[in-house]
């Protein structure tokens, strides 16, 4: 991987990573298998609509994990992420034909030189609406 970012090179407000992620039904099935979360609302349209949802929806944890992947790719070492928290505030609806698009952005929210950490604030949007709230990752850097 590339060189790890240094705390001294960062400024609050700086956007450090951005990515648009395509999410298909196949991705949901794959996550269901890898995570053990087999709730049918994530792969069966009839189960989703019976639960009052517009269509199959992505696992909230898949969106949270996509945010983590964005952060770890930037940090250089996945173990640098010492804290990570999100609120699930919106649905990622994944129609069978076209799937969904997730727009992810990570920006520096705070720097703590004494602790050697940067707080990254993540934004995740789908169809123009935020799907995560207070999504924050605390990353230990040199």
């Amino acid at each position: 991987m590339s060189a790890r970012p240094a705390l001294a090179d960062l400024a609050v407000g700086q956007v450090v990573a951005q990515r648009t992620v395509a999410v298909s039904r196949a991705d949901l099935v794959r996550y269901a298998g890898a995570s053990g979360d087999r709730n049918p609302i994530h792969w069966s349209a009839s189960a989703a609509t019976a639960a009052g949802l517009p269509d199959v929806v992505a696992h909230g944890m898949l969106t949270m994990a996509a945010g983590a992947a964005l952060v770890t790719a930037w940090a250089g070492d996945p173990a640098a992420v010492v804290e990570y928290g999100v609120r699930f505030t919106g649905l990622v609806v994944v129609p069978e034909a076209v799937g969904a698009e997730l727009e992810l952005t990570a920006a520096v929210g705070a720097l703590d030189a004494a602790a050697g950490t940067a707080r990254l604030d993540l934004v995740a949007r789908c169809d123009g609406a935020a799907v995560l709230g207070r999504a924050r990752a605390l990353v230990r850097l040199a």
Binding site: V21, L62, A65, A73
Partner: peptide
């Protein structure tokens, strides 16, 4: 499998799949 399922359209970080890369860190 978990790392590949959550890579979000980018290469999987080698620390999840390659013991040598993980040891290097």
């Amino acid at each position: 499998e978990f790392a590949e399922a959550t890579a979000a359209g980018a290469p999987v970080h080698p620390a999840h799949t390659d013991p040598e890369a993980a040891r290097a860190l």
